[in-house]
Amino acid sequence: MSFLLIAVIILTGLGLVFGLLLGYASIKFKVKEDPVAEKIDLLLPQTQCGQCGYPGCRPYAEAVANGDDITKCAPGGKATIEQIADLLSVPIPDNSNNDDIVIKKVAFIIEDDCIGCTKCIQACPVDAILGTTKQMHTVIIDECTGCDLCVEPCPVDCIEMIPVAQTTKNWNWQLNAIPFKQLES
């Protein structure tokens, strides 16, 4: 009987000691981690397009952190979904349109048509459109995220989304994509 008692006491004591140790360690050596929303935000493409239904990338990141669907980011496409799924250790949903390749586009103002209404400037989430009232506006191509938000407000429909042209510089070496050329001999 006393053996049993001793065993119980020792084990309880050990449990207590280690419990305290672990508790202490968890406080003392706490690793400061970015909140999940922060991490998700880093994965998002930052187009601030609102296609997910939230006013910007950060709010969507917070929504995902709180359990929203991870497939709502259209500009990020498959890659972003995969990364978020990986981060959150959740399976990649099947219903996401996985095979579409996102082609980067940028806005282009047909300058002849621009009446200088500044509506697009107000709409641009990243201040990538320049110009002032009654003056022609221009898109800073390098800053444009291709979010589409400026197209709608334009009263004269002078904004077009054009795909970023492939040049010899940003060519990605996809030789397989090159078909055999047929030439007249």
Partner: peptide, 9 residues
């Protein structure tokens, strides 16, 4: 007709 075969170096 002739084909130019494109392969990587």
């Amino acid at each position: 007709m002739m084909y130019l075969s494109v392969t990587p170096s």
